[in-house]
Design a protein around this nucleic acid. Structure first.
Ligand SMILES: [Zn+2]
Ligand SMILES: [Zn+2]
Ligand SMILES: [Zn+2]
Ligand SMILES: [Zn+2]
Lengths: 177, 177
DNA sequence: AACATTATGTTATATTGTAACATTTATAAC
DNA sequence: GTTATAAATGTTACAATATAACATAATGTT
């Protein structure tokens, strides 16, 4: 028995912050990082990154494709997946394993140790360094004699805001601003 | 840049333990649990569970399908996915999100709090309660005001045995026993 | 300019997962 | 036992996610 939450048709942008700033910062950081590394942030790769940053939600590859097609008429699945591969390699985005989706990396230094809090209601994903969790994981792994390549720590549930709305019984779209 | 390990054609059963015991115990436990709950462990569901327990590796849905077809000639994707849904609901198996695959649940009480250590070389998956990790996650989540439904904590890398083989430079199949 | 490398275009296909409705099988009520 | 109900399975069709393979174009290097 899983807890299911009604699907919201048109997802509102819950976090009331200067999201334009988020986007601008993400792109600026990516550009600098690619220059430093001699990696090429081509128009397609840049566009995919921008699309991923349109919200703090994970986005599916084929949704990206649909949104790129009007701009890059020759775009195909491979176009998108290649751009995603590049961005993941550079640590600029993350794959959300439990959603088969992708999200812009929000950690300043693009380190890969992180925990994702995924809201099942508003779909927002919060990326947290969660250092104590990482330490506990490191200990557990050491005990097991395991050698880590990659960690995927993904928590599904309700974000603070959505949990609040659930308990107060609000549900209409206008309540979500 | 990811660390890649040569693919082994025929995967050996690395863990030298009485695996027949694992299977028997898993099936026995499942039977009792279903009786207690009034859930029906039908032949198909039971077969899927048995197949998942043939190894300590995660198995893909379509691999299960291929292996069931000779026995249940009418088996189709839906057949397998329904059985998997049932087994997951009962807590008898887990979905490994980062592999799109499934594995028998090895925790005695079929609790859902666990960490998976996934070996990229031998493909074995170790399930660990990792209580300290769970506590750290709980704290982190509380700080964020998040309300958990489900956790997926999946660590990829090399198990102790495979890490050992990598450092000693062994690679041939016969070395893996 | 010639060459090598990297990125993209293009076609086709593989893999993973669901929806919808019909049929069968098991359980419950009478 | 027969009938009503619910649960499980059969069946067809398709949706969604992802990759392989090879051709072409753009970029970087000598
Ligand atoms: Zn933002
Ligand atoms: Zn939310
Ligand atoms: Zn075993
Ligand atoms: Zn291993």
């Amino acid at each position: 028995m899983t807890i299911d939450v009604p699907i919201i048709e048109q997802l509102p942008e819950l976090s009331n912050h200067d999201h334009g700033g988020c986007i601008a910062k993400a792109i600026r950081t990516a550009e600098q990082l690619c220059i430093d590394r001699g990696a090429r942030l081509t128009p397609i790769r840049r566009k995919v990154l921008e699309l991923l940053w349109e919200s703090h939600r994970a986005v599916k590859a084929y949704d990206l494709l649909d949104r790129i097609k009007p701009l890059e008429t020759s775009a195909k699945p491979a176009t998108v997946y290649r751009a995603l591969d590049f961005l993941i390699e550079q640590g600029l985005i993350h794959r959300v394993e439990s959603l088969n989706a992708f999200i812009g990396c929000n950690c300043s230094d693009h380190q890969h140790e992180l925990l994702l809090l995924i809201c099942n209601r508003c779909q927002e994903v919060e990326e947290r360094p969660a250092l104590e969790v990482m330490e506990a994981v490191a200990k557990e792994i050491e005990q097991a004699g395991f050698h880590v390549h990659r960690k995927a720590i993904e928590i599904h549930g309700l974000c603070a805001q959505c949990a609040q709305l659930s308990t107060t019984g609000l549900s209409s779209q206008s309540d979500l601003i």
